[in-house]
Amino acid sequence: MVISKEDIYKILETIPDPEIPVISILDLGIVRDINIENDQVEVIITPTYSGCPAMDMIEVNIKAGLQDAGYDQVKVTTVISPAWTTDWLSESGRQKLKEYGIAPPVKGAHDKNLLFSAERVVECPLCESKDTHMVSQFGSTPCKSLYKCNSCLEPFDYFKCH
């Protein structure tokens, strides 16, 4: 059997991020490459955050997903360079985040490198108001900040730039 990269990508597309299950690991942009050698499939991933507790689970899920599809020899390799960035989130991933109620990262906002830069404008994913404020830069998972909308008064998560 000849294994194609496309087939592997199609399966990875169905594997959800354990913490934000509405997006796949492909949407998240952590799959960097796939190497195929004879029957052996190697999936190369990069961690989102150093201490991300979901990484081990993602590895297990990739192996299980591919094995269910009949690929027995699967290896998952983690590389840390180049470092993952939220710029690698796919367009469909950003859309799915918003529909799920999580504001996607503001594009090209390299405020992450500037301490005390002006606050970015984060749009409320519920009512689309731009009148929002940050409650805490650390949220329920390492990748999120906590915001509140001044218009509809609802709190929401912001997938922070990284």
């Binding site: 955050y49 201490g51 805490s136 830069q137 949220g139």
Partner: peptide, 15 residues
């Protein structure tokens, strides 16, 4: 919020 913030920082450092 600060409990969560500190725990996040701890997680980053241990990572």
């Amino acid at each position: 919020e600060q409990d969560i913030a500190l725990t996040n920082i701890a997680l980053d450092l241990i990572g």
